Simulated assay, not measured.
Amino acid sequence: MIKDISLARKQTRVIDPAKNLHQRQLKQRIAFALIWLAGIIAITALLFIVGYMVSNGFKVINLEFLTTRPAGGVSGKGGISTTIVTTIYLVLLTITIAAPLGIGTAVFMVEYTTEYAGKKNLVGYLINLIRTSVEILAGVPSIIFGLFGFAVFVSYMKLKFSLLSAGLSGACLVLPLIIRTTEEALLTVPKSYREGSLALGTTKWQMIFGVVLPSALPGIITGIVLSVGRVIAETAVFWVTLGGSYRLPKNLLSSGRTMALHVYMLASETTAFDKALGTSAILIVIIILLNLAINISSKQFSKKFSGK
Results as ranks from 00 to 15, higher is better:
Gly196Leu: 13
Ala216Ile: 03
Leu177Arg: 11
Ala151Val: 11
Lys250Pro: 03
Ile41Val: 14
Asn295His: 13
Arg24Thr: 06
Lys303Ile: 08
Arg230Met: 10
Ile208Leu: 01
Gly223Asn: 04
Ile178Lys: 09
Met259Gln: 06
Arg24Asn: 13
Ala8Pro: 04
Leu248Gly: 03
His22Lys: 15
Gly78Tyr: 00
Gly219Pro: 00
Gln300Ala: 15
Gln23Lys: 15
Val50Ala: 11
Thr271Gly: 15
His22Gln: 14
Ile179Asn: 04
Leu101Gly: 03
Phe108Trp: 13
Ile136Trp: 07
Leu66Ile: 05
Ser306Phe: 05
Pro17Leu: 08
Arg257Ala: 06
Gly76His: 01
Ala99His: 00
Pro190Cys: 04
Gly73Ala: 07
Met53Glu: 07
Leu198Pro: 00
Arg69Thr: 12
Ser306Asn: 15
Met1Tyr: 07
Leu164Ile: 12
Phe301His: 05
Phe150Thr: 07
Val225Ser: 05
Thr12Pro: 06
Thr67Asn: 11
Arg9Ser: 13
Leu226Cys: 09
Leu137Val: 13
Val110Pro: 01
Ala138Arg: 14
Pro176Thr: 05
Thr270Ala: 03
Gly167Pro: 06
Lys250Asp: 08
Pro100Cys: 09
Thr105Asp: 04
Leu126Cys: 08
Leu122Ile: 11
Ile179Ala: 03
Ser298Tyr: 09
Arg230Asn: 10
Pro141Asp: 12
Ala31His: 08
Met157Ile: 09
Ala45Leu: 12
Leu226Asn: 03
Leu177Trp: 00
Leu92Ser: 04
Arg13Cys: 08
Trp239Val: 08
Met1Ile: 08
Val140Gln: 09
Ile30Gln: 13
Thr270Phe: 00
Ser192Arg: 14
Pro17Ile: 02
Leu177Gly: 10
Ala267Cys: 10
Leu164Lys: 02
Ile49Glu: 12
Val54Met: 08
Thr44Met: 12
Leu290Thr: 03
Lys160Ser: 15
Ser155Tyr: 09
Ala166Leu: 06
Thr82Arg: 06
Gly307Cys: 06
Ile221Met: 15
Ser227Gly: 14
Ile43Thr: 13
Thr83Ser: 14
Leu290Tyr: 02
Lys27Asp: 13
Val50Gly: 07
Ser280Pro: 01
Gly219Ile: 07
Gln28Cys: 07
Ile143Tyr: 07
Phe301Pro: 00
Leu122Val: 09
Ile103Pro: 01
Ala276Asn: 01
Leu290Ala: 05
Leu217Tyr: 08
Leu292Glu: 07
Ile35Ala: 05
Thr82Lys: 05
Thr188Glu: 15
Tyr193Cys: 04
Ile49Met: 11
Val85Pro: 02
Tyr116Ala: 10
Thr94Phe: 05
Phe108Lys: 05
Ile220Gln: 04
Ala138Glu: 11
Asp4Ile: 09
Val54Leu: 08
Phe273His: 12
Pro218Tyr: 00
Ser81Glu: 05
